[in-house]
């Protein structure tokens, strides 16, 4: 009991306080300057990029992942296909950072095999430079862990759909399309939105992949925060980093709260 609370205090609560207090302190004095510094164009554009990147990959990843989850749910429950895909996605969902960046460089980079294969059929993909841009390559790379994450998160919900609901709809006179519109769809909606929010925070918090892939500039908020560590310390920059970190926590906390609410509703419907 005591070790647990002591540990959490030192390594979780104190860091949280450091961020919160640091966001409002500069040179030992309380200030709102750090928060005001969030209005700098570099920070606002990084925040905007982060939000767009996270939102787009969350929506696209959620839709693709949901289709995949449904397809997998129709396979035999103890079959090899389902086991293999869930294991694969379980690893890929956590597969960020360096290896992921390597993988995409080896595929779409200047000498990547797909780049070369496309070149032989006459399609030039611009030497793979698009891969380093946050609104092109990074989106594709993020999808590589967003889709698997969606499968892992959403599959239990799809499998919670009881065959009786479909059969009851049919005996009452409904077609397959009507089942999805009136029964299956509405039942899955809270789980789907919840999973989408989870995907958003997942992309929003990701640092490693972008850091390993993007070497110039800091187009994303996590990279901006990371920049306050590695760059030559401009006076007070460190505490602006804390303000950015606080902004990030606020966004993530809001989204996670919405997720928790939706998840509770979904679990009431899909009694497992």
């Amino acid at each position: 009991m005591v070790p647990f609370f002591a540990y959490v205090t030192v390594f979780l609560l104190i860091p949280a306080l450091v961020v919160v207090i640091g966001a409002f302190v500069s040179g030992g004095r309380p200030t709102l300057g750090n928060i005001r510094a969030l209005g700098q164009p570099a920070v606002t554009s990084a925040l905007w990029h982060s939000v767009v990147l996270s939102a787009v990959t969350a929506v696209v990843g959620a839709v693709l992942g949901a289709v995949l989850a449904y397809a997998v749910s129709t396979a035999s429950p103890r079959g090899v296909l389902k086991r293999f895909l869930t294991s694969l996605c379980g690893v890929l969902a956590q597969f960020g950072g360096v290896t992921l960046a390597f993988a995409f460089l080896a595929t779409f980079g200047a000498t990547g095999f797909l780049t070369r294969a496309l070149a032989t059929v006459g399609v030039q993909s611009g030497g793979g430079l698009w891969l380093y841009e946050w609104d092109k390559g990074l989106m594709l790379v993020y999808l590589y862990f967003q889709v698997p994450l969606m499968l892992i998160v959403f599959l239990p919900a799809v499998e919670g759909l009881r065959p009786q609901w479909r059969e009851a709809t049919e005996t009452l006179g409904g077609s397959t399309a009507l089942y999805w519109r009136r029964v299956g769809g509405p039942i899955l909606l809270p789980s789907f939105i919840g999973a989408l929010l989870l995907l958003f925070t997942n992309a929003f918090s990701a640092y490693a992949t972008a850091a390993a892939l993007v070497s110039q500039g800091s187009p994303l908020l996590p990279l901006q925060i990371g920049g306050t560590f590695t760059s030559e310390v401009i006076l007070g920059r460190e505490n602006v980093g804390k303000a950015m970190a606080l902004a990030m926590v606020v966004v993530v906390a809001l989204v996670m709260t919405a997720y928790a609410v939706l998840d509770r509703r979904a679990s009431r419907w899909l009694v497992r």
Partner: peptide
Amino acid sequence: LLPLTVPAIVLVVGLTPV
């Protein structure tokens, strides 16, 4: 569950003095 709302990059910021 609190760390779910604390991205690793934020944890780095907070853990620096620790």
